[in-house]
Structure formats: structure tokens, C-alpha cells
């Protein structure tokens, strides 16, 4: 089993990318399960994901990197025992710190959960990159810094020049992390992400 944690700020396109990746893995014959976290009391994404036919567990009312750590671990164990997925995709809330989610899962490896790889996909939103860097820089960078791959999303909504500027800035901030630009909506670039995973 491979586990992928999709990190990224609110509205960065995590759910859209999750659906694309899940679809592509399913087409390749992989069994996909999903855990989606919502900080509020009411979730919306879980409904959307289940409507597409995926086994999805929704964890609302908190953040799986801090207040819901025990719930996350139990959910991972339950999903593994119930569905035996080849691929487990975890979408934390957009205010989670993905490296903490990774640590929480690493803590249960070897007990009820075995996996071959556990990777973080960090997703940035082209359209609002400047705003987040200006207003929430420390938190924004902290979210992304432990990613195994960084995905610059919504490239279809900015000019090529703007995209290259953002990719350049991100490369400087994180010189050792592979960067892929994509549009989760159109699917452009998603295959490249899959190859990295």
C-alpha cells in the first residue's frame, strides 16, 4: 500500500487533484481509499468523493495533525482492515501541517498498518500565491516545506510569465523539492505527478 498526504492551503485544489489521482489509479486497477478531513463541523468534500464511488471516510470538527490525531490513526487502521486498499489518499484540512500528519501515520507503522511508501504532495494555488506569501508567509511555507513533490496548481488561470515567476520563487524557497505545474481542473500535468508518486 502507498499512502499520499495531499497538503495545501484552503482552496488550493486538493480535492480536485485527489479526484484526478484517484481516478487515474483506479483506471490502472488500483483499489483506492480516501480519508478527508474538514476543520468545521460539516464536511462537503466527503459527499462529493463518495458520489464518485470511492470508499471515503470523512473526519470533521478539527485538524488531523493536532486535535484529531487519535481519530486519524484509528481511521487509517479501520480503512486498511476494511478495504485493503492499494492506495490510501489523505486530504487534511487546508490549515493542517502535512509533515505532522505523516509523523502520526509513521507512529502506527508496524502495528496494524504496513505501507511501502508515505509521501506528501504539497499543492500551491497560482492564482493566490502572492496573497498567501504576503499575508500568511510563515504558515504557508511551513505547510509546504516537507513535501516530497510540490505542485503549482491552477496554471490555466495565470499567464505563462506569471507561472514561471511563481515556479522560480518556489524553486528558490525549496531547491531540493521537485516542482510540477498543473491544472487539476483540466488534468494537464497530473500524469507527471502520478509518475513521481
Amino acid at each position: 500500500m502507498n499512502i499520499y498526504v495531499l497538503g495545501g492551503f484552503l482552496g488550493s485544489g486538493k480535492t480536485t487533484l485527489l479526484m484526478k489521482i484517484a481516478s487515474m489509479f483506479s483506471e490502472r486497477g488500483k483499489k483506492v481509499s480516501i480519508i478527508v478531513n474538514e476543520m468545521g463541523t460539516i464536511g462537503v468534500d466527503g459527499t462529493t468523493i463518495k458520489r464518485q464511488g470511492y470508499n471515503a471516510v470523512e473526519l470533521p470538527e478539527g485538524c488531523i495533525c493536532c486535535t484529531l490525531t487519535g481519530t486519524l490513526q484509528k481511521s487509517v487502521i479501520q480503512v486498511v482492515n476494511d478495504y485493503y486498499p492499494d492506495i490510501l489518499i489523505i486530504e487534511p484540512t487546508g490549515l493542517a501541517l502535512p509533515d505532522k500528519v505523516k509523523s502520526i501515520i509513521e507512529a502506527i507503522k508496524g502495528t496494524s498498518v504496513e505501507y511501502d511508501q508515505l509521501k506528501i504532495v504539497g499543492i500551491l494555488d497560482c492564482l493566490r500565491f502572492d496573497i498567501f506569501i504576503t499575508k500568511k508567509k510563515d504558515f504557508y511555507l511551513k505547510q509546504l516545506m516537507h513535501s516530497d513533490v510540490l505542485v503549482v496548481n491552477k496554471k490555466d488561470l495565470v499567464s505563462e510569465k506569471k507561472l514561471q515567476s511563481i515556479v522560480g520563487q518556489v524553486s528558490e524557497m525549496f531547491p531540493n523539492i521537485k516542482i510540477i505545474s498543473m491544472s487539476a481542473t483540466s488534468g494537464d500535468g497530473v500524469l507527471e505527478i502520478l509518475e513521481v508518486l
Partner: peptide, 18 residues
């Protein structure tokens, strides 16, 4: 007590069903 990531970011959430 350590702040949660939501508190650090200044997050607010409201939801309801019906």
C-alpha cells in the same frame, strides 16, 4: 497549551445541513 494549526493560521469555520 500549544496552539492548533487552525489557531495559528487564524481559521474560522461555519457549517450546517438542511
Amino acid at each position: 497549551m500549544d496552539k492548533t494549526s487552525i489557531e495559528i493560521a487564524g481559521g474560522v469555520s461555519i457549517g450546517f445541513t438542511g
